[in-house]
Amino acid sequence: MTVENVVRTVAAAHRAERGALLPVLHAVQAELGYIPQEAIPVLADEFNLSRADVHGVVTFYHDFRREPAGRTVVRICRAEACQALGAQELVDYVRAAGMPLGQTTPDGAVTVEQVFCLGNCALGPALEVNGRLHGRVGPAALGALLEGAAAS
């Protein structure tokens, strides 16, 4: 199925909703793994918006990807509670390992992102690996998770 077909099918399923652009963007990303550039004009057409309006929404919200994510997605919480409990050490570890924050490794294995609350404040620093929440993660545990991700 082409990107245009996916976008139009998803838009049709949400057409009756008020303010449907965000739910449609989430659904397109769930279907394709990201919001491809060629989806922007189709969404603009579907919702009678300018391309700039749609592009602005996609680029404003950090949850939307414009490139395919890696096979493993690691999301490090940077909210206040996790920061107080050592999240910066996790970010420093990722940087020292040569992994670009907010990007995918060249081999497509891992994408490391920063988020601002995973709702696991009592067990910070927290991170999420492919949707699975981990608490009280130190650099050594993060290293083991990343090694496991790179091996898969």
Rank of each mutant, 00 (worst) to 15 (best):
V6D: 01
T9H: 10
V10C: 03
V10P: 01
V10Q: 01
A11G: 03
A13H: 13
H14N: 13
R15I: 15
R18W: 01
G19N: 14
L22A: 02
P23C: 12
V24K: 11
V28P: 01
A30R: 14
A30N: 13
L32I: 10
G33C: 07
G33T: 10
Y34A: 06
I35D: 13
I35K: 06
P36V: 01
A39N: 07
L43F: 09
D45L: 11
D45W: 06
S50P: 06
R51F: 03
A52R: 13
D53M: 09
H55V: 05
G56C: 01
V58S: 12
V58P: 08
V58I: 11
F60E: 08
F60W: 10
Y61R: 09
Y61T: 02
H62T: 09
F64S: 04
R65Y: 15
A69Y: 04
G70V: 00
G70R: 09
R71S: 09
V73A: 07
V73G: 03
V73K: 08
V73H: 08
V74W: 13
V74A: 07
I76K: 03
C77K: 05
A79P: 00
A79W: 09
A79Q: 05
E80S: 10
E80M: 11
A81R: 12
A81D: 14
C82V: 07
A84R: 14
Q88K: 04
Q88E: 14
E89V: 08
Y93L: 06
R95E: 15
R95F: 00
R95T: 13
G98T: 04
G98H: 10
M99W: 02
M99F: 08
L101C: 06
G102P: 03
T104D: 01
P106L: 12
D107I: 13
G108L: 06
E113S: 12
V115M: 04
F116A: 05
C117L: 10
L118G: 01
N120Y: 05
G124P: 08
G124S: 10
A126R: 06
L127I: 13
V129M: 04
V129Y: 00
L133N: 04
H134L: 09
V137P: 04
V137G: 07
P139L: 03
A141Q: 14
G143P: 04
A144E: 15
A144T: 15
L146Y: 01
E147F: 01
E147K: 15
A149C: 10
A150R: 07
A151V: 03
